[in-house]
Design a protein around this nucleic acid. Structure first.
Lengths: 187, 187
DNA sequence: TTTCTCATTTTACAAATGATAAAATCTCAT
DNA sequence: ATGAGATTTTATCATTTGTAAAATGAGAAA
């Protein structure tokens, strides 16, 4: 997925603003397993996924709990680093070899203050992430694990092929055993 | 809570931009029980709570499930109306008599495109809401109901005084009976 | 092929939460 | 002070989910 498309899918920018943004990104590639964002560090880098798959997880009493999975077109950030410039709580690990576009967050902050179109692009980006997060909260709050699994099947069937079930289970907020039971029932 | 403080708490604005924003707000007051935002409607109004308490709830198979509670300083919006200009899924009801600052969303959208400071204010607003929502998602995903109740006790003890327990229970994502058990244990 | 490792499923049991109903308590207008 | 209605707690049983361990499956390496 090309950087132009990723940028435009958030909010269409005038050509000059888009060129400015692209000018400050560079392509990077990492191997499966690489930890691109580490918890308890301030990391203001922003990555757009050109190709590949990643997960965000937090260490909660000794085990890794995956709470986010991103694929082509998604944006990788340490949310608290990005917004509050403080240590983030998430580790982000590559689940496949990845090609990414990298953007320095400090530079982006300057662009926000200098270019109104980029400021509005940043606004739309946060708003869209907000909608997605709120949808997930409501889904977790009011739907059963079975319904959440079926939603995943319907909207992201490729993830079931690309990610192992222990990760899917954590993403759905249940244990692997519980997911296995659900899969047996659905079948 | 004054409109100046609410605006500045999101992101400090230059005097002229703040004046522009304030110029487009007007004070309104409604009685306890009033439905200020209705589900399945596009409502682009934005309200800042000067005084009072509100809840957002969705109708899910016949019962009302509260998923948000706002008090002084909070912002009331239909998230999907605000971001995507589509019908929202939330009803927002006043739990106390309220004094609010009202702002027309269509005007705010124009200001975003005309004033870079206001655009960045809107960006910070979305980012802060995003952090709050993500915290709640992680809390729901990885903490027990008892832990979530204790967090509420610690961070928002006044809500326990101001809101009836059935609403608190829904907000915590559990039944009222379950909350009652937790309270009995914690005591 | 055989063996080894890791992922997944299954099983058995325990703990948490939900559903329902009834009892206890609280609130507030009269 | 009293009583009706709302709210909260308690009790019981059903369901869901978690934990632990064993069984199975799939694929890599010897």
């Amino acid at each position: 997925m090309l950087i132009e498309h990723i940028i435009d899918s958030v909010f269409p920018l005038p050509a000059s603003s888009k060129a400015t943004l692209i000018q400050h990104t560079r392509e990077v590639a990492f191997r499966k397993g690489h930890l691109i964002i580490k918890a308890n560090k301030v990391d203001q880098h922003i990555y757009f996924i050109k190709k590949g798959l990643v997960r965000a997880f937090a260490n909660i009493d000794d085990n890794e709990v995956t709470f986010w999975i991103g694929k082509e077109g998604a944006t990788i950030i340490s949310m608290r680093s990005y917004v509050e410039h403080k240590e983030g709580y998430e580790n982000i690990e590559l689940l496949e070899d990845c090609e990414l576009y990298q953007l320095d967050g400090a530079i982006l902050q300057q662009l926000f203050l200098a270019d109104i179109h980029i400021a509005n692009w940043g606004r739309k980006f946060a708003e869209q992430e907000l909608i997605h997060t709120e949808e997930r909260l409501i889904s977790k709050q009011f739907k059963t694990a079975t319904e959440r699994y079926k939603d995943l099947l319907e909207h992201n069937p490729d993830l079931l092929q690309r990610v192992q079930l222990s990760v899917i289970a954590a993403y759905l907020g249940i244990t692997q055993v519980s997911l296995s039971r659900i899969r047996a029932d659905v079948r």
